[in-house]
Write a protein that binds this DNA or RNA. Structure first.
Lengths: 201, 201
DNA sequence: CCACATCTGTAGTGAACACTACATATCTGG
DNA sequence: CCAGATATGTAGTGTTCACTACAGATGTGG
């Protein structure tokens, strides 16, 4: 039995294009026509490969988080909680204003609120954001164990805080804030983590 | 010449219902059918009164910002920059988890990214968020002039920071964060403003 | 009571949407 | 070279969308 006609397009390359459309217009704002045109394929190819629109989004999210995963590993590899926050927020200021991508963060732009029938799209995005928060929380737990954070510090609250600032910066980037403005926000935000850090003796 | 048949519904009451639909589903996710049902009117009444869907959104946003305006005035009336930030963020933690409203903030849930044809909806929301930021900035400028903030403090950056944290908290609220979680974020966030405050002598 | 103006409910309108049937093309295994 | 399997392009499908034509209802000014 044969294996059938091979795919004529590169799925990962097509995903990159789809990712950008979702990023710019959100899940509901992105149409199949826009997606297929950006991907350089026709609707039947899209549905054969990804199932449906939501399947395509999930595949794009997988690719997005995979690409960002390596960077997050670098972030949590910073030696102190303060530097973790700094790397994270400064890096986000740069990434979210990188002209190579749409402004903001796909995990926010993708869709915060959706209409009936797409209710789990916001859930899906929230789950991916929570992964980053968990990674930060684990890192801050370690920082506290190492005496890098004060005894009174709450690692989960700190992680949630850094995550919240990231999201807020993303929304600002998508509505026109430039890199310098975001860096100033990051700079202020880091001081809260600094305040939770143990004194250097 | 006569004045015509009078309107049979209360426009402000209807706006409150429309506001909630936009809040929960976003601009694109909200359908005219949902809106008219929630408002208790038929489509022709909606279009006669508000022009079109986008006109209805703007009217709802006007009402939203008007309702919040009084509260923002209380916020900036706090005696110090630190207390302004604390009132703002703690109040937001409570408001965004108030079961009387959908979770989060209408100025975010309304629509961060939109499809072609609704591009100015995100602009409209961003403009309203910027108003709050401006109000905070002016307050922090005063705080600096009063010696309440350090000489090195940047009032515009601080206002942008508080605004970013607010937005981030809103997104978290809409994805299930409870009041206590948001209060912890607010608590950490305030410490950055504290770090920018002049020492009490 | 009549001319006029505005609102309301019914019942649609064309357009855009996500998605697919089908014929054709291109592969593998025998 | 043939049979089975999968991909592709064309051209749609039914549904849902924002929006409206129209006729009847309800008001005001003369």
């Amino acid at each position: 039995m044969g294996m059938g006609r091979p795919r004529e397009f590169d799925a990962e390359l097509a995903l990159d294009q789809a990712m950008e459309v979702f990023w710019r217009h959100g899940y509901e704002g992105a149409t199949i026509a826009q997606l297929t045109e950006a991907m350089g394929i026709n609707p039947p190819s899209l549905y054969a490969c990804f199932g449906n629109k939501e399947g395509l989004l999930k595949a794009a999210l997988d690719r997005y988080t995979k690409l960002r995963g390596a960077w997050m590993d670098e972030v949590v590899a910073a030696p102190t909680a303060r530097e973790v926050a700094e790397r994270m927020l400064m890096g986000i200021a740069d990434k979210q204003t990188d002209p190579a991508n749409p402004p903001g963060c796909l995990l926010v732009q993708g869709g915060i609120a959706c209409g009936s029938g797409s209710e789990n799209v916001p859930f899906e995005l929230a789950a991916r954001r929570a992964q980053n928060e968990d990674q930060l929380r684990d890192r801050f737990i370690r920082a506290k164990a190492e005496g890098d954070l004060k005894e009174s510090a709450d690692p989960a609250a700190l992680a949630r805080y850094v995550s919240a600032v990231s999201v807020g910066m993303g929304v600002m980037a998508s509505s026109g804030a430039d890199r310098e403005a975001l860096r100033q926000v990051a700079d202020v935000a880091v001081q809260a983590v600094e305040a939770q850090s143990a004194d250097r003796t």
